[in-house]
């Protein structure tokens, strides 16, 4: 366990040293999401808001989108980081050297995810935090909910990121994952449109993404929106998703290790 934590800490530190003050991070995870956020905010402007599903005016809309974008950016940063780090590590040959070591691959995957989260998302989370305070969604009397929400996001995103790292780390070109998880995840997880308003088939699709449960729990906790399924069902859904993702991560890493021992290659295909 001690070695596991040492490896995780090393990965977090490396991420910070590697990407510190990188323009790429500021643009892709602060400026672009803020611009995208306001684009969606203005996309709602032609509509008559009538307290349907909790959005009644500009402020409640900001709170609704703020929570959605905050959670989405945490999850999306995992996709982006896993992709770019895997590419860099493969090109730089450091992936090969890391595979020579006896370090736990699971610790490496989770360390990378947590490192990226700590390093890259804090700026946008601060932006969303201010937004939630501006809209009075977070007040002095419920301020304690903010760390709880952040903890939920950190745990869920790390497990999600760990799985993506396992996918990206051991495949030559998994850029299709970027396409699959960008727009569909934004649409079906309810980042911009309430999931409860979806038709049945879209609600079923939304259940695949752990982000859906995460957003629903956060919106429920902050009294932005109620879930038609009830918060217990949302928590159960999230726990099942986290369990499945952990199992997939362990399976992928194990398979990749065996493949690596057989062929010396760090990719499946």
């Amino acid at each position: 366990m001690k070695k596991f934590l040492i490896v995780m800490k090393a990965e977090i530190t490396k991420q910070q040293q590697h990407d510190y003050h990188s323009a790429y991070v500021y643009f892709s995870l602060l400026i672009w999401p803020i611009l995208g956020f306001f684009e969606v905010y203005y996309a709602y402007k032609p509509f008559e808001l009538t307290d349907y599903m909790g959005i009644e005016d500009g402020k409640t809309l900001l709170a609704f989108l703020g929570t959605g974008f905050m959670a989405y950016t945490c999850f999306w940063s995992m996709v982006q980081n896993a992709w770019s780090m895997a590419n860099q590590e493969r090109r730089g040959g450091t992936l090969e050297i890391a595979s020579l070591t006896p370090a736990s691959r699971l610790a490496m995957s989770y360390g990378r995810a947590l490192g990226a989260l700590i390093q890259e998302v804090w700026m946008f989370v601060c932006f969303c935090g201010f937004l939630l305070m501006y809209t009075k969604t977070i007040r002095w009397d419920n301020l304690f909910l903010l760390p709880a929400v952040l903890l939920l996001l950190i745990i869920s995103s790390t497990v999600w990121g760990g799985m993506l790292n396992a996918v990206f780390l051991f495949s030559r070109d998994a850029s299709i994952v970027m396409d699959v998880f960008d727009m569909p995840m934004t649409l079906f997880s309810g980042t911009r449109v309430p999931v409860d308003s979806f038709p049945c088939w879209a609600r079923i699709v939304s259940m695949v993404f752990p982000l859906t449960y995460c957003i629903n729990i956060i919106r429920f906790a902050l009294h932005i929106q109620k879930s038609s399924r009830g918060w217990q069902a949302e928590i159960l859904g999230l726990l099942i998703c986290l369990g499945v993702m952990t199992a997939v991560t362990v399976f992928l890493i194990g398979r990749a290790e065996r493949h690596n021992r057989e062929t010396g290659e760090l990719q499946f295909y």
Binding site: K45, E48, T50, Y52, S197, A202
Partner: peptide
């Protein structure tokens, strides 16, 4: 698709006069 979902499923075609 996004505006389609917003327009049809969420807002049910309820546009404001400004639009």
């Amino acid at each position: 698709i996004f505006p389609y979902f917003m327009y049809h499923y969420y807002i049910h075609g309820n546009l404001n006069s400004e639009f």
